[in-house]
């Protein structure tokens, strides 16, 4: 048997080997700048120093949804264009997305603690993020449950796309459910009225975290490609007659 469809991934490996160190360096520098600026940002007149959790929370929350978007694109790549790297990308993104979502949950809970007096409140935003986290975990479980990656890839792609359609519906339902049961969320961003002193560090952190995701994603894709090569080689070895 031959090693399957490696022409394209091989090019991917050599390309990313060149890019990754630069990406990692850029991520580190931007993160350092962003963290410094966040630390230097003034305290909020209402929330005090706890407002600085926002600089970590918001980028994570943004990435938790962005990563699902990346996975949905990869899912289309698997189902429609049948690109050999698509399911590698989808599989590699899921645990990273789950990690960002988890961080968004934890920082959101820490942020809410001084205001709610509890670590968990069935707040609309946090509840939606929790459901998103559960969906990430389900997807990872699916990838792990099936030995053959191409079979798992199709199923995961269908589920990712169904999830992409469903996430806005879930978000809407949870918001609606929340207004039914309690007053609106305390975790409220000022939006465009946010002061410049907050906005700039926030943007820097958002870019830094996005770069972090790209770096981690490319590295994880490399690992996944290598893992599949090992699997292919082992299968080749198994099918060879005894010497």
């Amino acid at each position: 048997m031959t090693l399957i469809d490696l022409a394209n991934p091989t090019r991917f490996l050599s390309l990313t080997a060149k890019i990754l160190p630069w990406l990692a360096a850029a991520t580190a520098i931007l993160l350092a700048i962003g963290l410094y600026q966040s630390a230097m940002a003034p305290d909020d007149y209402q929330q005090g120093a706890t407002v600085k959790i926002m600089f970590i929370h918001v980028p994570n929350a943004w990435l938790s949804m962005f990563v699902w978007g990346v996975m949905s694109l990869s899912a289309l790549g698997t189902l429609v264009w049948r690109h050999p790297l698509a399911d590698v990308s989808a599989k590699a993104a899921a645990p990273i997305g789950a990690a960002f979502t988890f961080l968004a949950l934890v920082t959101g809970s820490l942020w809410g603690r001084p205001m709610w007096g509890t670590y968990w409140e069935w707040d609309a935003r946090l509840t939606s993020v929790l459901i998103l986290f559960l969906m990430y975990l389900g997807l990872i479980a699916l990838w792990r449950a099936v030995e053959d990656p191409s079979r798992a890839a199709r199923a995961a792609a269908v589920l990712t796309l169904v999830g992409a359609i469903n996430i806005p519906i879930i978000k809407f339902s949870v918001d609606w459910w929340n207004t039914l049961h309690q007053p609106a969320s305390v975790l409220r961003m000022g939006g465009s009225t946010l002061d410049k002193a907050f906005l700039i560090p926030l943007l820097v952190m958002a870019v830094a975290f996005s770069l972090l995701f790209i770096t981690l994603h490319l590295a994880a894709m490399r690992n996944e490609i290598l893992r599949r090569r090992v699997r292919a080689l082992q299968m080749q070895q198994a099918s060879q007659p005894r010497a």
Binding site: M1, I4, E147, D148, P149, S150, R228, M235
Partner: peptide, 10 residues
């Protein structure tokens, strides 16, 4: 034909 990463015939 490829099944489970194994080439059956080509």
């Amino acid at each position: 034909c490829v099944r489970g990463g194994r080439e059956i015939f080509a």
